[in-house]
Design a binder for these strands. Structure first.
Length: 386
RNA sequence: CGGGGUGUGGCGCAGCCCGGCUAGCGCGCCUGCUUUGGGAGCAGGAAGUCGGAGGUUCAAAUCCUCUCACCCCGACCA
């Protein structure tokens, strides 16, 4: 991607609306812009990283045998009345009426919808167990939205729901999810702790949450798993017939990851004084080429390396703007692409280029022909968890 | 909802207490020339209903009333 043609908008100064470091950096590095309190637009750089989080989640979910679905955002009130949560959920749920005066809520979570789907399709023990998940926008009318995308009113969430024959099966499904969660967070570069939690409005028998810790020691929850038991299957009549033909309620579990919050949590951990320091797995681009000056030789070389790496399937951002060196270096640090390749007149005289990992202090210089292999090697290096 | 705070060109701010003349500063933006290893220089230029409404006054960014939006702390949560 040529920066000149890209919609990358960085902020030189700290926006006054943001206090929390991840929020500040997401705005400054051009990942997000606010539309209203607790409501954000994702810009290209932010969306690319968000998509990478989603991809990791999908891969790990699919490995457990869970299958992806997409449930509606708009939920009829009658469905929520079946479980009593239409009134229980209170002001937290955004509500509206259609032209006929029928009431709807914007889904803050999807137990009712998924249970309604499954009870309509599953009749026999032969169809169980099944685990379904989705990555969908959720709406919660928070008392006080804050910290940018950490606590917003509209946010992206992965929610999975397991349906089992009995308690033993449910425990197995639950444990499988917990294992997948550990893998997901590790692939995102985060050390997490798993611990017992309050199950709140979702309810159920037992729940555990996954928390990550920021540099400042704050711990801001990124995943939450619940053993629901038969709370929803009883009230919503999600039954199946066992081998003997007896009707039994399905035993459920539900498992959430705040996708947009996870992204913020990663930034809360992966940054320094100059900007973002993305783990390679989530970086919007893998390599930033930074060319200095407008000499034809410089441009040609940058162009050649850009094409060479792109042809190898690497994701490259080339800062080809007509900006001063200082601006380019500052922006490169701010947006935090993991590997920086500098093409400058000074180095080109000796047929060399400068290579530096965002997290490292020292730049190494190497012959132009060694650049691509060196980058390929760097991209293979594992990254530490934080 | 309780407490605290902010709203002035795109961004960050000063001015407000103590009303006064074409509303300033830094950055950014546009044009030209020069510059290119850490947020460049010179010259020229564009851009503001001072959040909104009402009031006081000869005169309001500034004083009064109402209102809206946003931020921070608390109760709630992925």
């Amino acid at each position: 991607m040529h920066w000149r043609e890209a919609f990358i908008v960085t902020l030189k100064e700290n926006p006054q609306e943001a206090d929390l470091v991840s929020h500040r950096l997401m705005l400054r590095a051009g990942l997000l812009r606010k539309l209203a309190s607790g409501i954000y637009s994702y810009l290209p750089l932010g969306l690319r990283s968000l998509r990478k989080v989603e991809t990791i989640i999908r891969q790990e979910m699919n490995k457990t045998g869970a299958q992806e679905v997409l449930l509606p955002v708009l939920h009829p009130a009658v469905l929520w009345q079946e479980t009593g949560r239409w009134s229980e959920y209170g002001k937290e749920m955004m509500r509206l009426k259609d032209r006929h005066g029928r009431e709807f809520g914007l889904g803050p979570t999807h137990e009712e919808v998924i249970t309604s789907l499954v009870r309509g399709e599953v009749r026999s023990y032969k169809q169980l167990p099944v685990t379904l998940y989705q990555i969908q926008t959720k709406f919660r009318d928070e008392i006080r939205p804050r910290f940018g995308v950490m606590r917003s009113r509209e946010f992206s969430m992965k929610d999975a729901y397991s349906f089992d024959l009995d308690e033993d099966g449910a425990v197995k499904s639950y444990n499988k999810m917990a294992e997948a969660y550990a893998k997901i967070f590790a692939r995102c570069g985060l050390k997490t702790k798993r611990r017992a939690a309050d199950s709140g409005l979702i309810g159920g028998k037992l729940s555990e949450e996954f928390v990550s810790f920021s540099k400042t020691g704050e711990e801001i929850e990124i995943g939450h798993i619940f053993k629901l038991g038969t709370k929803y299957s009883q009230s919503m009549k999600a039954f199946y017939r066992d081998e003997s033909g007896t009707q039994k309620p399905m035993v459920m579990g539900c498992y959430g990851i705040g996708v947009s919050r996870l992204l913020a949590a990663v930034i809360e951990t992966w940054h320094d004084d100059d900007g973002l320091t993305w783990p390679i797995s989530l970086a919007p681009y893998e390599v930033e080429i930074l060319s200095l000056g407008e000499d034809a030789e410089i441009i040609n070389l940058a162009e050649r390396l850009h094409r060479g790496l792109t042809d190898r399937g690497r994701e490259i951002l080339w800062d080809d703007r007509k900006e001063s060196a200082g601006v380019k270096f500052k922006d490169a640090d701010l947006i935090g692409i993991p590997i920086r390749l500098v093409i400058s007149p000074k180095l080109l005289k000796e047929r060399k280029a400068g290579l530096k990992k965002r997290a490292d202090k020292e730049e190494i210089t190497l012959g132009i022909d060694e650049v691509i292999p060196a980058i390929e090697a760097m991209l293979k290096e594992p990254f530490d968890l934080r």
